[in-house]
């Protein structure tokens, strides 16, 4: 097997606060091959965005990477200096942040922002950059791009701005796309256009994608593999179909169960009881045990590592016991 485009190994991120350190990411490992889409899911606050932020070197003090490594196409990129990292970010890694507005300058026309990125990273002429910008806007479904390219961000709708940010992230032909909730503001049809575009770039150019989203429908139709995060850790990782339909970790099973159905209206949506622990109060043992319907005594003090057959692993003592049993 060829080496992955992105390899994150044992990554830990801590925020130093007055009340002591907050361990926001602990021992996170992921890898994404060329042409592959890894979906990252998990409850609000689980550490999905932070994982992306750490990969692109944008963790800000008081936060810092306290362990692990990030490797892009065989080259360590954690610890690069600011300038080198900015180069990597524009050219090799395209980023769609969760707050699309933070990537757009409200004072610049949409077209100028795209052309600027294209010219800096691809070295195209002014005219060629404008053509590429127009093409990108059309690909993300902006109506009448020639007419809209010289508008300002505030003249676009929320979903149109989100699409401009996607166009910006793809502008320099990155090898890795980190897309944090890229389709939240989009209707299903335009969503299909965007995910179709991303899939095509994976297939044709071998782009690797880290797709963060809480929309399981998008995951089911787009991702190849899925990583489920909980309280700063990856608790399950496997092929998309297996994770959705045969989730091993009790948290993942609860997550799949609380998806509202389109088929009928429910009186109350099902929710996993309780809340994810706060970073300053992560329990001993398995972080999920206080909410877990199948916990056993050992879960209170023993922290499970990812276990199970390679390819579909879960961090749960029961899964580990099962795997050991099957192996014995």
């Amino acid at each position: 097997m060829s080496s992955p485009v992105l390899a994150v190994d044992g990554l830990s991120v801590t925020f130093e606060t007055r009340r002591g350190p907050l361990h926001a990411l602990r021992d996170v490992s992921l890898s994404i091959a060329a042409g592959e889409i890894l979906g990252v899911v998990g409850e609000s606050g689980a550490g999905k965005s932070l994982t992306g932020t750490a990969v692109i070197g944008l963790i800000e003090p008081p936060g810092r990477i306290v362990g692990g490594s990030v490797t892009l196409r065989g080259r360590r990129i954690d610890g690069l200096d600011v300038k080198a990292m900015r180069e990597v970010r524009g050219r090799e890694i395209g980023v769609v942040f969760q707050d699309p507005l933070t990537s757009l300058n409200p004072l610049l026309r949409v077209g100028n922002q795209l052309e600027e990125t294209i010219r800096t990273h691809l070295g195209l002429s002014r005219g060629a950059a404008r053509q590429r910008a127009l093409g990108l806007l059309a690909e993300v479904g902006i109506p009448a791009p020639a007419e809209r390219i010289d508008h300002y961000p505030h003249q676009f709708s929320g979903g149109m701005r989100q699409r401009v940010v996607i166009a910006l992230a793809l502008a320099a032909d990155p090898v890795l796309l980190i897309a944090d909730e890229p389709t939240t503001a989009l209707d299903v049809s335009i969503q299909a256009q965007i995910t179709g575009l991303i899939k095509r770039l994976c297939r044709e150019r071998g782009m690797a994608v880290m797709l963060v989203t809480h929309d399981m429908g998008v995951i089911a139709e787009t991702a190849d593999r899925v990583a489920v995060m909980y309280a700063g850790r990856v608790v399950e990782e496997g092929p998309v179909d297996a994770v959705i339909h045969r989730a091993r970790h009790p948290y993942s099973r609860g997550l799949m169960g609380s998806i509202p159905s389109m088929r009928r209206r429910m009186d109350a949506l099902s929710q996993i009881d309780g809340a994810m622990p706060r970073l300053d109060a992560i329990p001993q043992g398995c972080a999920f045990h206080p909410r877990c319907p199948v916990r056993v005594e050992a879960c209170h003090h023993e922290r499970p590592d990812l276990a199970g057959p390679p390819g579909h692993r879960a961090a749960c003592l029961l899964v580990a016991a099962e795997a050991a049993h099957a192996g014995a």
């Binding site: 899911v41 409850e43 809480h214 609380s258 998806i259 929710q271």
Partner: peptide, 13 residues
Amino acid sequence: SALDVSVQAQVLN
């Protein structure tokens, strides 16, 4: 739009 299904269910309820 930015909420996972579980928290979303909580807020909508």
